[in-house]
Design a protein around this nucleic acid. Sequence first.
DNA 1: ATGAAAGCGCTAACAA
DNA 2: TTGTTAGCGCTTTCAT
Lengths: 336, 336
Amino acid sequence: MGLRRKHVTIAEVAARAGVSPTTVSHVLSGRRHVAEATRAQVLAVVEELQYRPNELARSMVTQRTSTIALIIPDITNPFYPAVARGLQDVLTPAGYYGIVCNTDGDPAIERRTVEQMVHRRVDGIGFAGYYQHQSTVAPALAAGIPVVLFGSRDARRGIDAVTANDLGGAESATRYLLDRGYERIGFVTGPAGDGPPALRVTGYRRALRAAGRRPDPKLVVRAPFSRDGGAAGMAELLALPRPPRAVLCTNDVVAIGAMDEARRRGLRIPEDVAVVGFDDIDAASLAYPALSTVAVPAREEGRACGRLLLHRLTDEPQQPPQAVSFDCTLVPRDSA
Amino acid sequence: MGLRRKHVTIAEVAARAGVSPTTVSHVLSGRRHVAEATRAQVLAVVEELQYRPNELARSMVTQRTSTIALIIPDITNPFYPAVARGLQDVLTPAGYYGIVCNTDGDPAIERRTVEQMVHRRVDGIGFAGYYQHQSTVAPALAAGIPVVLFGSRDARRGIDAVTANDLGGAESATRYLLDRGYERIGFVTGPAGDGPPALRVTGYRRALRAAGRRPDPKLVVRAPFSRDGGAAGMAELLALPRPPRAVLCTNDVVAIGAMDEARRRGLRIPEDVAVVGFDDIDAASLAYPALSTVAVPAREEGRACGRLLLHRLTDEPQQPPQAVSFDCTLVPRDSA
DNA sequence: ATGAAAGCGCTAACAA
DNA sequence: TTGTTAGCGCTTTCAT
């Protein structure tokens, strides 16, 4: 164990079967006709020796690794496993495997990871980052490796994109709160960036303006994308001279943290503060009170990403970039 | 895009720098001394051409891919992302990347996946399956690829293992229920298997016997490892002539499904049925009522798996197999 | 201090 | 219908 054993090679199979490696290769790939007798003989030896081609060697010559990289902030945020599963839903049947990389949203790590994946010659990349999307994935594009961006508003500079209507979702959530009479609405967003979180803030502002209010910058606070971050954001909001009575959060994990904090302070939800999240992860419906949220079809997004990648990899690599967008739907529950 | 561009090769760098590929290789790896002037010259060209070695080619000769496969039932069950993250906590700094494979607990898929990973020459495998562990990973062992089994009671036949004290955890949860006066305690487990779920049932039975009761086989029902499965299991239990007043579930996702079903039938938790889960995923504390559960340190397990693998990969590959076990702790909350 | 040459295991022209 | 010959791009003896 831990000791590399010698693997059976195509040459050994060939020798044993009394044919050339080429013939063995062709029997296995079916890429050219082989006499039935030869075929049977080769197959027998393959079976006897339990031969399987070394994928690495094959990749060297075919220049394809059948590997896709999924680069995300944190697999521990339940939104991403759903995306990952969706991706695999479509990629696995096509023979691809996925390398999952966590970046914690750190631009330096994102960049390093993209480069590593290029050097590893992955066939495609699904990238969910919050910063400088275009430049981060540049090495991949330069190498001709298809990239699908998550959360980019639209496809550009030759990059496919999968996105949810973050802006519209945030807008309707805000409108919903406005309609229920909330005057001051806070927003807990993540660190500065230009991805979906930014769009969600924009939607929030837009709804406010549409209702004739001017967004108060103090009501938008930044916090890490985590349960603790949500708590910190809520704390910051509640420390305001005139704290908001309703708080929109950039995602459910953050919203759950915000509820933690409110509860810690003895505030009732939604009577004292209403909370609305984003994503509709499983935990949202389990939370108490059940979290009102804007549902984003994560698994569907993953599937779309897979399809887009597959399309570039097989059908017509040269088509213009495509953007697939999904609608977000407000799921009113008990927290608002 | 989607069009493979030519990558810079070591030969081009060498030519441009007026040295041999050997020298370039050594400058980059530092594996042999190179005159300072030569070194500088090579580095300059590397920078100019933005050269990075093709990892595939490197793997061909070094026989190492710096890739670890994590084979699990379903990344969508929050227990596994935590494991995955733990694995990466220790593997990423060591330069390894992880391929994540979902098997849905299907033995045929598990087998296929292990084989694929062997053909891809991953350097190590973390395997969480529920069936025939030993034989499923046999191809990896035969190839000398280190494997760490999740949930195996102990290391054997040369396989390292990471496990939680499933048996003890189930035992104490059962005892807890017994102590609180519950007479008939049901158990919703998964499909037949010999992994952690089986141990949990064993622990449950053992606690029952220790308390002088004889386990009623009718009270143990099998259901898929999913929220819906949990609901089905609970339904089956409640359909019994004398339904249990407390139900232990093989994991939190199943427990949450069981609560769904109880609620659907208008039963109060814990007054009418008490429910206890296993794992302590994030959602457990969010559920309403907050789910009492047996905490399993998923991320720690992932880290241990990574350490074990790293150990085989670097230090002393030939040491006897090790088993790392973690304690499970009962987390009493409101559902029981 | 550096280079030449072999080869990791496979596929794909090109021949026969 | 099958085989011979080149590599894919790198690392690593073995020489010098």
